[in-house]
Every structure is written in C-alpha cells, then in structure tokens.
Simulated scan of single mutants.
Amino acid sequence: MFYYLNGTVAEVQPNLAVIDCGGVGYACATTGHTLSGLKKGEKAKLYTHFHVAENAFGLYGFGSPAELGSFKLLIGVSGVGPKAALAILSVSTPETLAMSVITGDEKALTAAPGIGKKIAQRIILELKDKMSKESAANGFALGTGGAAVSADFTSKTMEAAAALSVLGYSSAETAAAMKGVDTQSLPLEEIIRACLKKMAR
C-alpha cells in the first residue's frame, strides 16, 4: 500500500513516530533504533509496511530497507507478531539478527522484552531453514555449524551471503554489494554491515 513516507517528523513517542506528509500525519509504529535517528521538526524517510490482521491493522515504519526486511521476515515466523518483531529489532540491528540466526544465539533474541526461549528457538529454526533453502538455490550448502562451504569462496564470504539472504536480498544483489568489500580481513558482522550500507544507497 505504502512503500515509504518522506516528510517532516511531527511527533516522536515511545515506539511511535508521526510523519507529516503534505499536511497528513501518518502514525508509524517503529523500533528504538529508528526512533533514535528521528528529531521532531526535521525531515525523515521511513520505509513502511501496512499490516492487516483479522481484527486489527497498523502502519509500521523503519529507517532502512534492511530493517523493514527484517521486520517482514520476523512476522513471517509462526507465533511472531508485529509487537514481538519490533521488540526484537529494538535490541538487534539487521546484521546482528542475521548473526544470531547463523550462530543460533538464542540469548541475543531473548534480550528483547516478551521474547522467551521457545519463540527464539522457533525464529532461529525457521529463518535458518529459509537461509539453507536460499543457499542451496544459489549453489552452496550450509555446514552443521551454519558456515557455508564452497571451493570457490571463503567460509566467511559465504556466511555473509547467507546472512544477507536471510534479510531478503537476492544472490545478484549480494554479489554486487560485496564488490570492493574486504571480505578477507573484516569481521563477518562488518562485512554484512558494509554490504547493507551499499545496498541502501
């Protein structure tokens, strides 16, 4: 329905930002990370998702396409609603969420209010399954530890590619983003962050 809102920040409240676009104020539920980058009276652009449920609907806004992509992936996990997804993304960035899935780090997810161990395990299981399918479709396989194995690419490069696939990016987008990134010496999280910055341009 809406792809993004580009206007002036009219209000900033806990978990909520109001963006004035041409005299109409759009209330967007959002994350702590996005709110930290907003200031009342200044221009802002939020990438949005209009969520429709059986008895409710809501508009959600995010400071980057990667954060929006992470939100959509999380609400696609059985038992994870928008409120839980926002809680997770208020304590995890898109790159740390991807790292949590790759490494099976339940504690990083349960740090979010209202997220218990069972939900954290389900998120890791379902997103890792999605990552494995994406990896297989792109011609490489995941090892038991989550590391991708390939004769042509380093394990770290493949793990970064798998993490980006979890965030919804295609193999072509990932390959283009990795050009010029020092995948040999940078830590895995920095590789993912560098790619996300390039794809957000």
Rank of each mutant, 00 (worst) to 15 (best):
M158N: 09
C195F: 03
M131L: 07
L97W: 07
I19D: 12
M199R: 12
S92W: 01
T110N: 14
T103N: 11
L5N: 08
A120H: 07
K117V: 12
P65I: 10
M99V: 05
T48C: 15
F71E: 05
I102C: 03
V24L: 12
E106H: 05
P94W: 09
T48E: 04
N6C: 09
E106L: 12
A162V: 11
K40R: 14
K156Y: 13
S171V: 03
E42D: 12
A161L: 13
P113I: 05
S70A: 15
P14Y: 09
Y47V: 09
K118T: 08
G79R: 09
S132H: 08
Q13D: 10
A163I: 00
G168T: 09
A29R: 02
I192A: 07
V80T: 02
C195H: 04
Q184F: 12
K72R: 15
K83Q: 01
T144H: 07
K118S: 12
K156C: 11
T34E: 06
G7T: 04
T8Y: 07
D105V: 03
A194F: 04
G22D: 11
I123G: 00
G180P: 11
L196T: 06
G104C: 13
V149A: 00
E189K: 14
I192E: 00
N15E: 03
G139Y: 01
A194H: 13
I191F: 13
N138W: 03
A66G: 05
P187Q: 12
V77D: 07
F50M: 08
A112H: 02
A53P: 02
A98H: 11
K117C: 10
S165D: 03
K128D: 09
V181N: 11
P65A: 05
E67H: 10
I119E: 08
A200R: 14
N15L: 02
A85H: 03
N55D: 15
K117W: 01
G145I: 08
L89R: 04
A147E: 14
I191V: 15
G23N: 08
A10R: 13
G25T: 01
L68E: 09
D129L: 14
L46Y: 06
V101T: 06
G143C: 04
S90D: 01
G63S: 14
F71V: 05
G7K: 05
S100V: 09
F2V: 04
G7I: 07
K179C: 09
T183R: 04
S132F: 01
E190W: 01
A27K: 13
S70G: 14
K40W: 06
T174Q: 11
I102D: 02
D129V: 07
L188F: 04
V91G: 02
L97G: 00
L142A: 11
G180I: 08
L16G: 08
F153R: 15
L196S: 14
A177L: 08
D105P: 07
E67N: 12
Y3Q: 10
P14E: 02
G58L: 14
G25S: 00
G76M: 13
P82Q: 08
Y60T: 02
A175E: 13
G69E: 10
G41H: 11
L5K: 05
P14S: 08
G7Q: 00
G139H: 06
G79E: 11
A148N: 01
T110S: 12
G116C: 06
A44F: 09
Y26P: 00
E189V: 10
E54L: 04
G63K: 10
G23D: 05
I19F: 13
D105M: 04
A176G: 01
A120S: 14
Y4V: 02
H49D: 03
